[in-house]
Design a protein around this nucleic acid. Structure first.
Lengths: 192, 192
DNA sequence: CGCATACCATACGCGAAAGTATGGTATCGT
DNA sequence: ACGATACCATACTTTCGCGTATGGTATGCG
């Protein structure tokens, strides 16, 4: 039973390391995830790390899976709870447009799609979200053929925007411009 | 005068290294660009490399700038040569949809947006292309506000699709499905 | 003919980060 | 009270890829 009151003091748990790893990834990218650096940031040394994890890859894997589990749930469930199908897509666009932290991690992982451990996670997440969009578009009245393509287009636009906005600094929009952009995408991509 | 008949044989030129670097980047990503590996692939050793380039970064920089110079020119110039502005956007979509090699490099660089040398190059390229799209949309009749947002949306969709298709293997479309997708994006994103 | 230049091979130095070995301290259960 | 367990520090070894040093060969030029 690993239930030994970790709230007590000073001691770090496995989850603490995973959270810290995600934090570091969000800020400095996957490439910057080094064990000595992370340990320093947590005020400890490697000795601590290698007690919790067998290897560096293990930490990355754990952090990614953690993000994959807890990163989506909320929004998608809230959207599915909306009774009127016609209202789901607009609400989804709005909600997504307000997140930040989640997008930071997502953008950081997109930049690191090179990494063999990151790629499959992103593939799964993207597949699920595209499926979700597909369903939403069908419910909004599009045909099967239209819905799947529109879902791909929409999600591609989302992914691409993260790159352009966060990583590349293109479209460095202020709040007003950003709102206008979101409005434009909704008008363009959501069937009336 | 660096004109010493390099055609002779066996000897490599600076451009040969740059091309080989781009080839390797297209296939295995920026992270795999190591000098010893590249040298092996060219049938020589490091000794040769460090005669042509002072450092590994220098090669990457040269390869990136080379790609930046020669990668775009063709298509954009061809599009601008089209007399009727209304026809430019459809033609652009079609032409882009047929490229391959260019997209492979572009996708590989997108995966490596982490890298400090890659990022500014991609930022410049993306900015120019977005500007180009913006102009095209204006000529197609959109208002200034609409054109800029539609340009962002279109280019974001392009970037995102490369990620989903090439890197993540989502939307693993065959030719027929791909054509249908392109057609859908044109109908959705190009003003009638 | 012979030297200079261009191109390449071989062998080594070196720094950064991963992983290992080992020992120290605090806390908890009994 | 005391031993076991959980957590962490320190010092070390290993690996990998960059860069350097230096010497070898071929080709064009005077």
């Amino acid at each position: 039973m690993k239930q030994h009151h970790k709230l007590a003091r000073g001691h770090l748990s496995t989850e603490d390391w995973e959270e810290a790893a995600l934090e570091l990834i969000a800020n400095q990218g996957v490439g910057a995830l080094a064990v000595e650096a992370l340990a320093r940031q947590l005020g400890v040394t490697k000795g601590s790390f290698y007690w919790h994890f067998s290897t560096r890859q293990a930490l990355l894997q754990a952090a990614l899976e953690r993000w994959e589990r807890y990163g989506e749930r909320e929004i998608l469930e809230q959207i599915e709870a909306i009774p009127c199908p016609q209202q789901r897509l607009p609400e989804l666009f709005h909600r997504v447009a307000q997140e930040l932290r989640t997008h930071q991690v997502y953008a950081a992982l997109l930049k690191a799609l090179d990494h063999p451990q990151v790629m499959p996670v992103m593939a799964r997440v993207s597949q699920r979200r595209t499926d979700f969009l597909n369903k939403a578009y069908r419910e909004a009245g599009l045909s099967a053929a239209e819905a799947i393509n529109r879902a791909r287009l929409t999600y591609a636009a989302y992914v691409g925007f993260l790159q352009l906005h966060f990583t590349l600094g293109i479209a460095h929009l202020n709040q007003k411009e950003f709102d206008a952009y979101v409005e434009h995408t909704m008008v363009t991509l959501i069937p009336s």
